[in-house]
Amino acid sequence: MPPKRLAMLPSIAKITRKSLTFEEKLDIIRRQERGQKTNSIASHHGLTPSTVYHFQVNRLYQEGW
């Protein structure tokens, strides 16, 4: 019977996290304000589109949307 926990499988790669600098975060926000597409911003910075989208959502909540 195979193991029940995915962590026990040796073939599954470990998830790595990438931290963004303040300049990268500002660049993402400025590109969104200029109307650039989320997918193009994500590919430029090597991120997933959902990560870039969270910047947009968080900004709306902070401005009192």
Rank of each mutant, 00 (worst) to 15 (best):
M1Q: 14
F22D: 15
L60Q: 14
T16W: 10
S50I: 13
M8C: 11
M1G: 05
Y53I: 04
Q32R: 11
E63N: 01
Q56K: 13
I12D: 06
T16F: 09
S43W: 02
Y53Q: 09
S50E: 05
T16C: 04
S19C: 04
T51E: 02
F55E: 00
E24G: 09
T48N: 07
E24M: 05
S43Y: 06
G46N: 08
R30D: 03
E23W: 09
G35C: 10
S19K: 07
T16A: 08
T16S: 08
G46H: 09
D27I: 02
Q32A: 11
T48Q: 14
I41V: 07
P10Y: 07
R34F: 01
H44T: 07
K37P: 15
E33S: 01
T51Q: 12
L26N: 04
R31G: 03
T51F: 11
I29P: 00
S40R: 14
S11C: 14
F55W: 10
T16K: 14
I28Y: 05
G46R: 13
L47H: 05
E24Q: 15
I41R: 02
K14H: 04
R31L: 02
S43G: 06
T16I: 10
H44E: 15
G35Q: 03
F22E: 15
Y53W: 13
E23P: 00
R34I: 00
W65M: 10
E24F: 03
E33T: 00
K4I: 14
A13F: 07
Q62F: 03
G35L: 09
L20R: 13
T21H: 01
E23N: 04
L6T: 15
R30N: 12
Y61V: 06
H54W: 08
R30G: 00
P2Q: 15
K18C: 01
P2C: 12
R31A: 01
I15K: 12
F55I: 02
R17M: 10
L60A: 15
S43C: 10
T38Q: 13
W65S: 14
N58P: 00
Q32H: 11
L60W: 14
P2S: 13
K37W: 03
K25Y: 01
W65E: 10
Y53V: 01
T38S: 08
P3D: 11
H54E: 00
E33Y: 02
I29W: 12
P49F: 05
E23K: 04
L60G: 10
R30P: 00
T48E: 03
G46P: 13
